[in-house]
Design a protein around this nucleic acid. Structure first.
Length: 766
DNA sequence: CTCAAGTCTCCGAAC
DNA sequence: GAGACTTGAG
């Protein structure tokens, strides 16, 4: 207990750096930072300076003489880890903070498994499969087991398996406990899935946790080494850890027991990902000598915002009572915006951003727009773009999910990890190399039978009976092509290898030759990946493709070096956790959307949605706007939702309806008059579908879909589209509700539009 | 085998 | 309304 001694000594030395450090904290925060030994539970309400405590605590440990590499800080996002390191660097010097272990569970463990994975039968170049990749494995597994994908949705199977893995249920155990047909089938697929992942030398996200546990169980000496290494551990967002995460942390902390966890049960929003709120509720039972510190003063929000958040969360039954208070001003009332439709909602938000900028001198970076589903971002983006407001989307449909980017990375992955069958299948015929479905099936059968990888099978293509001579050659040539790069891996710089490989693959040429604007876009994206690798190579001392690929597999936002830039931030409510903004908008406050429809039948879901709303409100420092639309397009169809029940849960005294109807959208910036002749494909005049009935109360000009006359589009016509502007019709196909047109929009490219949905007006007839 | 058209799913949040 | 997957003609 030498360190505790040091602590108390220190407080009696005014002017020492340790002392100064703690002066930046209030009394309770100081306690949380200075109790360095033994288990510590910090219950930290929203905006109570939790991050500040964590960073000061780590800095304090370092000042006490603890080596930075003996400290492990696990955060929920990579961004949070980066920020924490940066702030600690500020306090104790960058030299020190760089050696700290800080990151997400997944990234820290991937790093360890890269080093230790061979004990479990993986090479250091193992691939990390994201959710999309694993779906491919599920499908392959189902095919080989002859299980119908119509009957059992691969998505459902995947999420069933993942949640089992989250709770550390092995396939053997899963099969034993399967008591319905779905689980019985899922159990078989689970087993096959695990086999195939291993064969691919690949791990899914859950494996990054499970394999740590397996490693520690089978190799006590390795566990001991890491217990020695991580003598001090901190876990942020502890309320959102799942069973597997809980177990790894327990194992690592078992020896020194210097475990500090921070959390807030009111902000638990990842139940669907296996988060187990019991982990925080039971912490004191697991560690009876736990010291508990409550941070209950909020420094972030106005009294009004805090009261609104509290009145909402009061509706939850399963909640620890907590008294969060603030010394801040009352501030403005919560503003509720009623909008006619999702488009007007977006326009109103964009307009309010401008207003607040002009009248209250705010920067764009003061604003965040939050929503429940990623699909909502589009309308918001359009509106912001129309007003030339720069914005950044956090997460969402990621750059890394794009086909051409995945293809590029798959080429690299295959070279790094030739066992990776998913990557092989992705790129073997992209661009086309004359290896179609039939040939690849034969190749896969051969690989399966021999128990070898697809790449190895391709090397021996001549031996595959039932494969055409031409296909044999094509497969062999491809294997040789990849082999040439495997041979030089590690000998030439990563960026050079990547560039040469992608160049020689023909991927770039393929898009170049296609020549459409969309292809050009894809070409550009590939170039962006390659430059990113070049940057990485220049930045890192020991740059390697393995490490690069594993790192980006775990980050959604790898390339935002522009964090300091001035822009409005758009993101889901989930992504907003841990962040704060002077002005916050929450869009789509409608039943069925937020809370989502599923919550109606499941009280626990409802409580989680409510916690999510609580998280959303408490992001705001000064002002919050809640908006809802009376009509919204979902699934390309119009719906008529009711205002969210959550709006009614906010104390009435704190709410104000925002003034009147919002102004209409600014006029389109086109040249000349648009012929006001909304186009739609004909529908039979009768019988009228239910959809037509729904439209009866809508003013004619507003919606295209209810108009029945037929100004049929023809080749050569010039039309106007809401988003793409004016364009020329290249061709029209199909008829009635299925009519489609290919239209060339200058500066946008060719678009294939379903005329049933697309809002197109005719500008000129020839 | 390839390409284009047709059909189906997604829109529930992410390491 | 986009994207992934399937189907059918050449």
């Amino acid at each position: 207990m030498k360190l505790i001694k040091l602590t108390s000594d220190n407080t009696q030395q005014p002017g020492s750096r340790r002392e100064e450090l703690l002066n930046g904290l209030n009394r309770v925060q100081r306690e949380a930072a200075a109790v360095t030994e033994g288990p510590l539970l910090i219950l930290a309400g929203a905006g109570s300076g939790k991050t500040r405590v964590l960073t000061y605590r780590i800095a304090y440990l370092i000042e006490l003489g603890v080596a930075p590499h003996n400290i492990l800080a696990l955060t929920f996002t990579n961004k949070a880890a980066r920020e924490m390191k940066e702030r600690i660097g500020f306090l104790v010097g960058e030299e020190q903070s760089r050696r700290l272990w800080a990151g997400t569970f997944h990234s820290v463990f991937a790093r360890i498994l890269r080093r230790e994975g061979e004990h479990l039968g993986y090479t250091s170049a193992f691939s990390i499969y994201d959710t999309d990749d694993t779906l491919g494995i599920i499908r392959t597994a189902m095919n080989s087991l002859v299980i119908s994908q119509q009957q059992y949705a691969p998505q459902a199977v995947r999420s069933r398996i993942s949640s089992a893995k989250n709770q550390m249920v092995s396939w053997q155990e899963f099969q034993r406990n399967a008591d319905n047909i779905f689980d019985k089938q899922a159990g078989l697929i689970y087993q096959e899935y695990e086999k195939r992942l291993k064969l691919n030398n690949a791990m899914d996200f859950d494996d990054l946790l499970l394999n740590m546990i397996r490693l520690f169980e089978h190799k006590p000496d390795i566990l001991d080494a890491y217990q020695e290494r991580f003598r001090y551990m901190l876990v942020d967002e502890y309320q959102d850890t799942n069973r597997a995460q809980y177990t790894v942390v327990s194992m690592l902390a078992a020896k020194y027991r210097n475990l500090c966890v921070v959390g807030d049960d009111a902000q638990s929003i990842y139940r669907w990902r296996g988060a187990d709120i019991r982990n925080i509720l039971d912490f004191q039972r697991d560690y009876p000598d736990t010291k508990v510190v409550r941070l209950e003063q909020n420094y972030r929000s106005t009294k009004t915002i805090l009261a609104a958040a509290n009145s909402v969360i009061d509706n939850n039954r399963q909640q620890l009572r907590k008294e969060l208070w603030t010394a801040n001003d009352d501030g403005d009332l919560v503003q509720v915006l009623k909008c006619r439709d999702d488009r007007e909602e977006a326009e109103t938000i964009a307009k309010l951003v401008v207003d607040e900028q002009v009248h209250h001198g705010r920067k764009l970076s003061d604003f965040a727009v939050l929503y429940r589903t990623n699909a909502q971002s589009q309308a918001l983006e359009d509106a912001l773009r129309r007003r030339n407001i720069t914005y950044a989307i956090v997460g969402g449909v990621s750059f890394y999910k794009r086909k051409e980017v995945k293809d590029t990375l798959a080429y690299l992955r295959l070279v790094v990890n030739p066992s990776d069958g998913e990557s092989f299948m992705r790129v073997v015929n992209e661009p086309t190399r004359g290896l179609g479905k039939t040939s690849l099936e034969a190749l896969a059968r051969f690989a399966d039978a021999q128990g070898i990888s697809l790449y190895a099978a391709a090397q021996r293509a001549e031996q595959i009976a039932g494969l055409q001579k031409r296909a044999q050659n094509a497969a062999h040539t491809f294997a040789e092509f990849i082999g040439r790069f495997i041979a030089v891996l590690g000998q030439i710089p990563p960026d050079e290898l990547a560039r040469t490989l992608i160049d020689a693959s023909g991927l770039l040429r393929m898009y170049q030759e296609e020549g459409t604007d969309e292809a050009l876009d894809r070409w550009n994206n590939i170039q962006r990946v390659l430059s990113h690798i070049t940057e990485y190579t220049a930045r890192e001392e020991n740059a390697s493709l393995e490490v690069y690929l594993q790192d980006i597999a775990l980050t959604e936002d790898a390339e935002n070096s522009d964090e300091a830039r001035n822009h409005v931030t758009l993101m889901t409510l989930h992504a907003a956790k841990g962040l704060e903004f002077p002005v916050v908008f929450i869009a789509g406050m409608e039943n069925g959307l937020f809370p989502l429809g599923k919550a109606d039948t499941d009280p626990e879901e409802m409580e989680e949605e409510r916690r999510l709303f609580y998280v959303g409100i408490t992001r705001a420092e000064q002002k919050i706007f809640l908006s809802y639309a009376e009509r919204r397009y979902r699934f390309g169809e119009l719906s008529f939702p009711m205002p969210s029940r959550f709006l009614g849960e906010i104390d009435k005294k704190l709410v104000q309806q925002f003034g009147g109807t919002a102004p209409a959208a600014p006029p389109a910036t086109g040249v000349g008059r648009v012929v006001k002749q909304p186009f739609t494909a004909t529908r039979p005049a009768s019988p009228r579908g239910s959809q037509s009935v729904m439209f009866d109360d809508i003013p004619k000009e507003e919606y295209h879909s209810q108009i029945e006359e037929e100004p049929m589009l023809r080749r050569g016509m010039v039309v106007r589209h809401e988003m793409f502007g004016e364009g020329k019709v290249l061709s029209v196909s199909g008829r009635g509700a299925n009519a489609k047109a290919i239209i060339q929009f200058p500066g946008v490219g060719q678009k294939h539009l379903m005329l049933k949905y697309a809002k197109v007006t005719i500008v000129s007839m020839s």
